[in-house]
Write a protein that binds this DNA or RNA. Structure first.
Lengths: 135, 135
DNA sequence: ATCTAACATTAGAACAATTCTAAGTCAAGA
DNA sequence: TCTTGACTTAGAATTGTTCTAATGTTAGAT
């Protein structure tokens, strides 16, 4: 889904399109490295010197609630974010702390709405190990 | 794997079996609710009033490194732990913040050692949604 | 049985990530 | 232009985790 489409969707849903929200979404669009909040914040600060951490957190939560971005809880105590929301596996290297996308793995849960009576809203298939660079 | 077997394995591998380590592992054995560090710490404090948070953290890390327990990073900013190490899915309810075990789902990654050139060491298949109680 | 060196535990300080707060800014409609 | 509500800001507060230095414990050597 293109940046324009996501921005349009935000707008249609009655959400104010501030310069900060635009900047956060655009940053994720251009940086598919699963950045942390810190990385996003310090990068945006170079362009918008007065942007606040609270705004970055608020915006990421807002975009996540609208389903336009994805929150990654693979690294303990630290959030990463992904522009791509289509379900896909993430690989975390515990040596270099990098998050990788993994080539499509067919998941038996794909498309399922319920499991054990619980309502499925999101799949987060994580893999932990040592990445090719670190091996 | 029984508590006795895990304790024996720890011992065989040359790890000192202190009363605190015994207590942490036993607590996880008896509480299969995927407790957080806080829950473990405050429960153990009732029996061992001087146990320290650092010891709980150290012990959980040690047990996790020996592969005797499993760390769960499903809830943002908070660790949960599981006595059961056989790979299985975890469901997190974002309403009540409870972690559930999910009935066995066959995973195409099961048994795989490598993916995209990365070495797989652990699978963490997480599902987010609303649990049956909260629905 | 005692000594000793290595390891483990403790309490609390330090640190890191996130959330909260209160004041200020901005934009759209009356 | 004024008002209202929503958004942003800076920094304080909170929460979860790790570090530190002192103390306690253990296992092996004597």
């Amino acid at each position: 889904m293109s940046l324009k489409e996501k921005l349009a969707e935000l707008n249609e849903k009655g959400c104010t399109l501030t310069i900060q929200r635009h900047a956060v979404l655009e940053y994720l669009y251009e940086n598919r490295t699963h950045p942390t909040v810190e990385e996003i914040y310090y990068s945006l600060k170079e362009k918008f010197s007065t942007i606040s951490k609270a705004t970055v957190y608020n915006t990421l939560e807002l975009l996540n609630n609208y389903g336009l971005i994805q929150e990654i809880t693979i690294e303990k105590g630290k959030l990463h974010f992904d522009y791509e929301v289509k379900p896909h596996h993430h690989f975390f290297c515990h040596r270099c702390n990098h998050v990788y996308d993994v080539d499509v793995v067919e998941c038996p849960l794909a498309g399922k709405k319920m499991i054990d009576g619980h309502k499925i809203e999101e799949l987060r298939p994580y893999i932990i190990g040592t990445c090719s660079k670190c091996l």
